[in-house]
Simulated assay, not measured.
Amino acid sequence: MSFTESKEYFRWERFFTAVLIDMTKDSYLAYKKKNLNLAYLTDTVRKAILEKVEHINLI
């Protein structure tokens, strides 16, 4: 994807959720907002997320 287009979405969050769902469909990482895929809850993924979060400065 080289650009972001959101004419059909009211909020950016909905646009990016739709992109994530489309990009992961038919894979073991299939994303559904209502029920989080257990593949995203493994220790490896949790550690990767926490490593990225610690670099975020909210101040």
Rank of each mutant, 00 (worst) to 15 (best):
T42P: 06
M23A: 05
F3I: 09
L50M: 09
E54I: 10
K25A: 06
S6D: 10
L50C: 05
R46V: 08
E13R: 13
F10W: 10
T44A: 05
E51W: 09
Y31W: 13
V45A: 01
E54L: 10
M1Q: 08
E51G: 06
F3T: 14
K32M: 03
Y28V: 07
D43S: 05
D26E: 08
Y28F: 08
F15R: 15
L20K: 01
F10R: 14
M23S: 06
L41W: 01
N57Q: 11
K25C: 06
R46T: 13
Y40T: 04
T17N: 10
N35W: 03
K33R: 08
E13S: 11
D22P: 01
I59W: 14
K33L: 07
T24K: 02
R46G: 00
H55I: 06
T4A: 14
I21T: 10
K7W: 13
W12R: 08
R14I: 03
H55G: 14
I56A: 03
E13Q: 14
I59Y: 15
L58M: 11
L38D: 12
R14P: 03
E13P: 00
M23I: 02
K7F: 14
A39W: 04
D26F: 09
T17H: 10
L41R: 07
L20C: 07
V19D: 06
A18L: 01
A30G: 02
N35S: 08
T24D: 02
V53R: 10
W12G: 01
H55V: 10
L41K: 07
K7V: 11
M1S: 15
I56E: 05
D26V: 00
T4G: 10
L29C: 07
E51C: 11
D22Q: 09
D22I: 03
I21V: 11
I59T: 12
L36G: 01
T42Q: 03
V19S: 11
S2I: 08
T17S: 07
Y40E: 00
K7Y: 15
L38I: 00
A18T: 04
T4R: 14
Y40M: 02
V53Y: 08
M1W: 04
M23Q: 09
S2H: 13
N37D: 05
M1H: 11
I49H: 07
M1Y: 09
L38E: 09
Y9V: 00
I49V: 11
D26G: 05
Y31G: 01
K33E: 15
I59K: 08
K32H: 05
T4S: 15
L50Q: 10
A30M: 02
M23T: 02
K47V: 07
S2N: 15
T44Q: 06
K7A: 12
F10G: 11
T44D: 09
A30I: 02
D22R: 12
F15H: 15
T44R: 09
K34F: 06
S2V: 12
D43H: 05
E8N: 15
K25F: 01
K33M: 08
R11F: 12
K33Q: 11
T24P: 06
E8H: 12
I56N: 04
L36H: 00
